[in-house]
Simulated scan of single mutants.
Amino acid sequence: MTTQRMSSSNASRRNEASRRAILTAAFELVQEVGYAKLSIESIAARAGVGKQTIYRWWPSKGAVLFDAFLLMLGEQADTGEPALPDTGDLEADLKTVLRATIEELNDPRYDEPMRALNTEIVHDPALAALYSERLDGPMREMKKRRLRSAQRAGQLAEDLDLDVAVEMVWGPLLNRWLQRSGALTPEYADSLVETALSGLRPRH
C-alpha cells in the first residue's frame, strides 16, 4: 500500500469516527436537555470536534439529529432488506408490528428525539424532503408491500387504495402519540388493527 493510500484510509477512519461521535452526542444531548436547548456548539463540545466539522457535513442541528436517528435505527435493525412479517395472517402480523411500534414510542430514550424530529420537519422543508426520501418513503413502501401481499391472498379488497390503507392503520397511532391524547397500549394496537381491517376487507 502506498503512503498516499494509507493516508487516505486513515483520514476516512478519522472522518467516520468523528461522524459517529457527533451523531452519538446529538442523540444523547437531545435526551438530556431537550431539542430547544440543543445546539451545534453543545454537540461539537460533547463530540470533541470543531463546529466547522459539523457544518461541513450537516446544514442544521435538525439534520444532525435525523442522521443520529437513522444511525440508531440501523444499529437496531437486522441485516438484509427490511420487511414486515408475513405469516399469512394479516391481522396477527399487523398487531405484532403495531405493538412493537408502541413499545418504541413509549421508550423514553427515543421519545424526545422523535418528537424533536417531527417538530423540526414541520418547519424545515429541506429536512422534510430528506425525511420523506430516506425514511418515511421507504417505510411506506414496506407497509404497502405487506398489504399488497394480503390483497393477492384475497384478504383485502382488490380496489383498495394502499396509501390510504397505510394511513388508516398507522395514522391514528402516530396521531395519538404526537398529541398525547391517550395511552399507547397493546390493547389499543389490537383494537386499531381490528377496526381498520373491518373496513378494508373485501365486501361480500
Rank of each mutant, 00 (worst) to 15 (best):
R5N: 10
S7N: 11
S8C: 04
S18M: 06
R19N: 08
L23D: 06
T24R: 15
T24L: 11
A26F: 03
F27M: 13
E28S: 12
V30F: 10
V33P: 08
G34C: 08
A36I: 01
K37H: 14
R46P: 02
Y55S: 05
W58D: 00
W58G: 00
A63W: 03
D67T: 02
L71W: 14
D78H: 07
D89K: 02
D89F: 09
K95N: 04
T96K: 09
L98Y: 10
E103V: 02
E104V: 00
E104D: 01
M114C: 14
N118I: 00
T119P: 03
E120P: 02
V122L: 10
D124M: 06
P125Q: 04
A126H: 12
Y131M: 10
Y131N: 14
D136L: 13
G137E: 05
R140M: 13
R140G: 14
K143H: 15
L147C: 15
R148L: 15
S149H: 09
R152W: 12
A153M: 12
G154N: 13
Q155G: 09
Q155A: 12
L156F: 09
A157I: 08
E158G: 03
D161K: 03
D161E: 12
D163K: 06
V164N: 06
A165E: 10
A165V: 09
E167Q: 11
E167W: 03
V169S: 09
L174E: 11
N175T: 06
R176S: 14
W177M: 13
W177Y: 14
W177K: 01
L178C: 05
R180A: 12
G182M: 04
A183W: 08
L184I: 06
S191Q: 10
S191I: 03
L192S: 10
L192N: 10
E194V: 02
A196L: 13
L197T: 13
L197Q: 11
R203Q: 11
